[in-house]
Amino acid sequence: MLFTPQLRRTLESGFLPLACECTVMPGGTLMVRIFQPDTGQLALRVDNLSIANLTTVRQVAELVAELRYDLRTCVTPFGSSPASLVGSQGA
């Protein structure tokens, strides 16, 4: 497992203009929050992502692509994300 500051920056900058925060959790998992930077409105939150295989920028880029797909496809017609994918609104 190698989750360096460079890999974190790559992941966190992959959703611009939205903001992204990554938190390494105990047990080697990652929590990713993607939100509107001006309002703090949560767009997507994913918990328990394994970082065991995030050892290169390419692997992080593939994760960004997967999360972008989730962000595009997991939105209701009214613009809100399903509660099962996001936690409470925050920021």
Rank of each mutant, 00 (worst) to 15 (best):
Met31Asp: 12
Arg72Phe: 04
Pro37Val: 15
Leu49Glu: 07
Glu62Arg: 06
Arg58Phe: 08
Arg72Asn: 11
Met31Ala: 14
Val32Ile: 01
Thr23Trp: 13
Asp70His: 03
Thr55Gly: 09
Gln41Arg: 13
Leu30Lys: 07
Leu54Cys: 06
Val75Ser: 02
Gly28Trp: 01
Leu42Tyr: 15
Tyr69Met: 06
Gln59Met: 09
Thr23Gln: 15
Asp38Val: 08
Met31Arg: 14
Val64Tyr: 00
Tyr69Asn: 09
Asn53Ala: 13
Cys22Val: 14
Ile51Glu: 05
Leu63His: 03
Ile34Cys: 02
Asp70Tyr: 02
Cys74His: 10
Arg72Lys: 13
Pro37Met: 12
Val32Arg: 00
Leu54Glu: 02
Thr55Pro: 07
Asp70Met: 03
Gln36Val: 05
Arg45Met: 13
Leu42Ser: 15
Arg68Phe: 10
Ala52Gln: 05
Leu54Ile: 07
Arg58Leu: 08
Val32Leu: 01
Val57Ser: 03
Gly40Pro: 12
Val64Gly: 02
Val46Asn: 04
Leu67Asn: 02
Val57Asp: 01
Leu54Pro: 04
Gly28Cys: 01
Thr73Ala: 07
Val57Tyr: 00
Ala65Cys: 10
Leu49Cys: 08
Asn53Asp: 15
Leu49Ser: 04
Met25Pro: 14
Arg68Glu: 14
Val57Met: 01
Ala65Gln: 14
Leu54Val: 04
Asp47Trp: 15
Thr23Pro: 09
Val64Asn: 02
Gln41Thr: 09
Asp38Ala: 15
Pro26Ile: 01
Leu67Arg: 03
Thr23Glu: 15
Leu71Met: 08
Leu30Thr: 07
Thr73Pro: 03
Phe35Ser: 11
Gln59Phe: 07
Cys74Ala: 11
Pro37Ser: 14
Pro26Asp: 01
Ala43Asp: 06
Val75Thr: 10
Leu67Ala: 02
Glu66Gly: 04
Gly40Cys: 11
Leu44Gln: 02
Ile51Cys: 03
Asp70Ser: 07
Val75Glu: 04
Thr39Lys: 12
Leu42Arg: 15
Thr76Lys: 06
Pro37Leu: 11
Leu30Ser: 06
Asp38Gln: 15
Tyr69Pro: 04
Leu42Trp: 12
Leu49Pro: 05
Gly28Ala: 01
Gln41Trp: 04
Pro26Met: 02
Arg45Leu: 14
Cys74Arg: 11
Gly27Val: 09
Glu66Asn: 06
Leu67Val: 03
Thr55Met: 07
Gln59Leu: 11
Thr56Lys: 00
Leu30Glu: 10
Pro26Arg: 05
Gly27His: 10
Pro37Asn: 13
Val75Cys: 08
Glu66Ser: 06
Val64Glu: 00
Val64Ser: 01
Leu30Met: 09
Gly40Ile: 09
Gly27Leu: 13
Cys22Glu: 12
Pro37Tyr: 12
Val46Pro: 07
